[in-house]
């Protein structure tokens, strides 16, 4: 396997279009465009620009890294659908990376990662702890995780969570989400990978009909 694969990574899980190109063992380009909407129109031209500026073509890619969330449902579908289409067209793997993994990428040891969820709630995962991610209100976090000694907290509202849990809060990493996705995807290249799928953590907002059907008489 190529020790320095070429990976294009992108993420639209929040109000941004973020992308990074890993080539020759380093991040040769990184873009982060803030936008509340329009990611579906912007994403592919942005990726094409990055490749062009690096003097590369789509066919030079060894793999695709894609942020699968959690985050904005529509946003994570935009990136995942594009990644799966690219993987199909290029015949290279698309590798899904969660926002938890991307944020904790530079940290060793157990890290509790928090990402913003609607209505002041949080998506949380103990990365390195082998536990499933959760969707919780801030006041539910205490006691929700069995935190190993030395666990630190990182991400959205980390300071307040650190105080509430009595653990150290880490500053937000300087590197953006896309470079971390690219590096994680490169590490996983060559391993069997499921197709990337959005990580929703909340069910679809739908309720069964309230009015019961009529009684059918004999």
């Amino acid at each position: 396997m190529d020790p320095a694969p070429t990976i294009l990574a992108f993420d639209t899980s929040a109000a941004h279009c973020a992308a990074a190109l890993l080539h020759g063992g380093r991040i040769v380009d990184e873009r982060h465009e803030a936008m509340g909407r329009g990611q579906a129109e912007r994403l592919m031209p942005l990726l094409a620009d990055i490749l062009k500026d690096a003097g590369l073509g789509w066919g030079d890619l060894d793999g695709i890294g894609v942020g699968v969330g959690p985050g904005n449902f529509t946003g994570i579908r935009i990136a995942v659908a594009a990644a799966r289409g690219l993987a199909l067209g290029l015949g290279v793997p698309a590798i899904g990376v969660t926002g938890f993994e991307a944020l904790a990428h530079d940290e060793g040891g157990p890290v509790l990662v928090a990402l913003p969820a609607p209505r002041e709630t949080l998506y949380l995962q103990l990365v390195g702890g082998g536990t499933a991610p959760r969707h919780l209100a801030p006041d539910e976090v205490s006691g929700a995780f069995d935190l190993p000694p030395g666990t630190r907290v990182l991400g959205h509202g980390a300071e307040a969570l650190g105080q509430a849990l009595g653990i150290m809060a880490l500053p937000r990493p300087l590197a953006g989400i896309a470079p971390a996705i690219a590096r994680i995807a490169a590490d996983r290249l060559g391993q069997a990978q499921p197709r990337p799928a959005p990580l929703y953590l909340r069910p679809a907002d739908a309720a069964p009909p309230a009015d019961p059907p009529p009684v059918i008489l004999p």
């Binding site: 579906a40 449902f73 289409g85």
Partner: peptide, 20 residues
């Protein structure tokens, strides 16, 4: 339904970009 239409459009764009 826009969520579905978006998924289709992005998948098609991915295939089209990859294949030219």
């Amino acid at each position: 339904l826009i969520g579905g239409v978006l998924s289709g459009v992005m998948c098609a764009k991915g295939i089209a970009a990859a294949t030219g």
